[in-house]
Simulated assay, not measured.
Amino acid sequence: MTAALERHSNQSRPSEARFPNSYEAEAISAIAVECLLRELATWPKPGLVSHVDSGSHSDMNFRTFQRSATAIKPYLHALAEAGAKGCGMGRLRIIGLEAEAAMFAATGGVNTHRGSIFGLGLLCAAAGAKAAGLADRTMPLGDVVVRLWGRDILDGPVLLHSHGDKARRHYGAGGARVEAAQGFLSVYEIGLPALQWGALIAPGDTEAARAQACFALIASLEDTNLLHRGGMPGLRYAQSAARVFLDDGGVGTRNWRERANIVHQSFIARRLSPGGSADLLAMTLFIQACEAELLPCRT
């Protein structure tokens, strides 16, 4: 079990049973929800909901996301337990659908966390598998997802009414399923390095580090939420605006919040919302929390 899981567990671990122990699954789900709330508490995030404003959204706000995160926590717990028991993708999908139903019930039918239920849910299952000894403890969570469920992720049913899947089919973008099947490369190659770099150039400001990671993900990701809202021109605008912010010093400049807010307001004016990047930011925070001892520091 990682140091992060140990910090979230207040009980001694029984020697006769490694897993499933409900407190370990509870630790995993608690970390996951904490990461969802830390993503929510980051501002400015271009076009996205935060504690400051609702970004490009008129149907959801900070409280909507809080209710959603609370509603899906039991299912993240269940996914961690399912991973620990060696369950296949079929069982994980059933739990995921139950989590979506709970989300919609809590939000009045608004899709706040479907992407996180899928991606963060798989990572919770992978953390459960590692805690149970079904995968090497030194193996990154993304690699665990690939080894245990990679092929089945791509073979799953298409969500015909999902905006992300519609955009993926129309534009040929990879989307969340390809991201997961490849082990969340955007997290490991973009999100985590940017989060570490942000901590170095804005020491002591954890919100700045999260914002740096968010902008880096927007600049690089073929975000199907952006494609749905703005088509290819919207995606290209968002990537370019995020890249300019990063190239001009990112969160390492004194006035970074003012500069980031200008980008944020430009997304709002265009009704652009990089929801896929927000999901990956939460996953980045989760993997950092669970794998801190495995991640090299960027110099």
Rank of each mutant, 00 (worst) to 15 (best):
P193M: 08
A129M: 02
L79K: 01
Y171D: 03
S162F: 11
P203R: 01
Y171G: 13
F184E: 15
K73I: 02
S68M: 10
L200N: 13
L185A: 15
G142F: 13
R151M: 11
E100V: 08
V146A: 05
A135L: 12
G142E: 15
L185H: 14
I95E: 06
K130H: 04
A209R: 03
L76I: 13
R114P: 15
A132H: 02
S186T: 05
V144K: 03
R147Q: 14
E100H: 13
L120G: 13
G83D: 14
P140F: 11
P140G: 05
H113Y: 04
V145M: 09
E179G: 07
G121P: 09
H113N: 13
V187G: 04
L160K: 09
L120M: 11
A213P: 07
I117N: 03
L97R: 07
A211P: 06
V144W: 01
R114L: 13
V144C: 05
L92M: 09
A167N: 13
K166D: 15
A129F: 00
G108F: 15
A208W: 06
A181P: 03
R177Y: 12
S186Y: 12
R210W: 04
D155L: 05
H161R: 07
L148K: 06
I72E: 11
K85R: 06
H170C: 06
L122D: 08
V158D: 02
A127M: 11
A102P: 07
K85D: 06
D152V: 09
F118R: 09
R67K: 12
K130C: 01
I95A: 08
R147M: 07
W149E: 03
A102Y: 12
A127R: 06
L195V: 03
A126G: 05
H77Y: 13
Y75C: 10
Q182V: 01
N111Y: 10
E189R: 05
L148P: 01
R169F: 07
A127V: 00
P157Y: 14
M89F: 11
D136W: 03
G198V: 00
G150D: 04
L97I: 15
A82S: 08
S186W: 07
